[in-house]
Amino acid sequence: MKQYAYYPGCSLESLAESYNVSTLEVARGLGLDLKEIEDWNCCGATAYFPVDELLAYTLVARNLAIAEKDGASDFVTPCSACYKNAYFTNAYLKRDADLADHINYALEADHLHINGTLRVRHLIEVILEDVGLEEVKKNVTHPLKDLKVAPYYGCQMLRPRKDHENVENPQFFEQLLAALGADPVPYPSKTRCCGGSLIITNRKAALDMVRKLLEDAVNHKAEVIATTCPMCNINLEVYQAQVNQEFGTQFSIPVMYFTQLMGVAMGLKPKSLGIGKEMVPGVPLLNFAQS
């Protein structure tokens, strides 16, 4: 069984704990061995970069260096912001010896050294590339037949561009949902931003951005919005009530992690996937769950 250095990130220890447990359950079911990085630190999300760029890279590099020291070749994280930070830190220090020197000077104080040998990917990429849709289908025992799902990609999983991927109209999330038996609805806003940390620093702007995403999903008859990032999920789910208060709307659409959809389709128990902790109950998904 191939082993991956697993970086959950801070959100997955608190508000997004359901994403962590569902990730681990689904990975186990698919034969992916996720080994949590020992004593990892916060990747900084979007909050370090306004203060000091070198510090931002170094804090991310520490986690990568610990994984390297442990002999890992693959780094995987379910959080889009952690992924973006890890991916670019790794890529930049590989191409820039000067940056690598600066980072390694700091890491030395923590008895670490980074070479940039890891392959950094988002969890959904690992599932699609290393497991594959055919294998995923084989694991589906409770198909999410006709469940209308809005595939919400968000930002940082796709952007900035990492390689030659399709950043304007990606299809991989739809393909994964279809493999689970679900019916992915057209969702024109699927790569539009949820507001990220503006939910704290510019509440008015962020709530408006969330409102537009909810509206688009409802207009396209989605019963559930599926996410690949804890920040997206928190903004769309936890702040749905505030959107309703601010705009007089009556949104009540469940927002679930893609791993929770996978887990239900694979016949795993909802409780083991962290289902039941939503602010907007995941009823449409629960209809398919193993009883």
Partner: peptide, 9 residues
Amino acid sequence: CASCYHCTV
């Protein structure tokens, strides 16, 4: 700016 990088790409 929410750092969504839509302008960037």
